[in-house]
Amino acid sequence: MMDNVKAKKHLGQHFLKDENVARKIADTLSLEGYDHVLEIGPGMGVLTKYLLDKPINVYVIEIDVESVAYLNGHYPKLHGHILSEDFLKYDINKVFEGKPLAIIGNFPYNISSQIVFRALDLRAQIPEFSGMFQKEVAERICEKKGSKTYGILSVLVQAFYEAEYLFTVSEDVFNPPPKVKSGVLRLRRKENFALPCSERLFFTVVKTAFGQRRKTIRNSLKTLNLSDNLRQDAIFDLRPEQLSVEEFIALTQKIEADGV
């Protein structure tokens, strides 16, 4: 048998070593509405083994060639289902051909937000997404308006998914231990996840508003060249963290009607 894989700092690897936590993460999946699950960054397969016990087609995507070799050597069930690729760049439909799938993982902290944005791009195909993040990021994704941590990720994710913070994981169940606690969340796509406004404009409005989060919406959205008439609307007196997801959608509708 191969030796264990050495964690690589540049890949943000912290290998989970607690079997109970791994099993709990695997159990976050409902297995409803999809026949495939893609695990991102499986490392040595601590979570993978629990996924393989479930009645679902398991695929893993791993950028680290040493981990890929380890998985090939230890998990014969995965043969043909290991994608030695970068999730952020890989076209998953080379494998999934438009079919729905769940995403799961103990995500590398240095790219976890990018993984979420990539999953949002694929939202029509991803009814469920769960896994482990740096605690602060997991909390931010699930945060509601009025909080300092509520931001772009919170609004964009919650526009399409019900976000639920499930449990906190301490540093000592990893090798090497990270400097911060971790948090596990689950996202379940809303039944009607098409927005009643231009989704492209919605993304622009949210990102632009939070780009200057201390300013009022009136000031932060100046670059959109809105009409003076629209800018008199009371919603423009607020700062972005004071707007709920629904209010951001309503704001986008108003901007759309304004002819942007």
Rank of each mutant, 00 (worst) to 15 (best):
F193W: 13
T204W: 00
E191M: 10
L201P: 05
L201C: 02
K181D: 14
P178R: 01
T208I: 02
G211S: 09
A209H: 00
N192V: 01
R186A: 06
R186N: 04
P196F: 08
E199M: 08
L201G: 06
G211I: 01
L195A: 04
R188D: 02
P178Q: 03
T208E: 03
G183Y: 07
L185Q: 06
T204P: 01
E191F: 06
P177H: 15
T204V: 13
R200W: 13
V184K: 08
L201W: 05
L187Q: 12
L185R: 08
V205M: 12
K207M: 07
K179Y: 03
F193R: 03
L201F: 12
G211L: 11
L187H: 07
V180L: 10
K190E: 07
V184C: 12
K181M: 11
F203L: 08
P178A: 01
F210W: 10
A209L: 02
L201N: 15
R188L: 11
F203S: 13
T208M: 02
E199Q: 05
K190T: 05
R189H: 09
V206K: 03
V180P: 08
G211C: 10
F210R: 03
R188I: 14
K179T: 12
V206H: 01
G183C: 09
E191L: 13
T208H: 04
N192F: 00
N192W: 01
T204Q: 15
T208P: 05
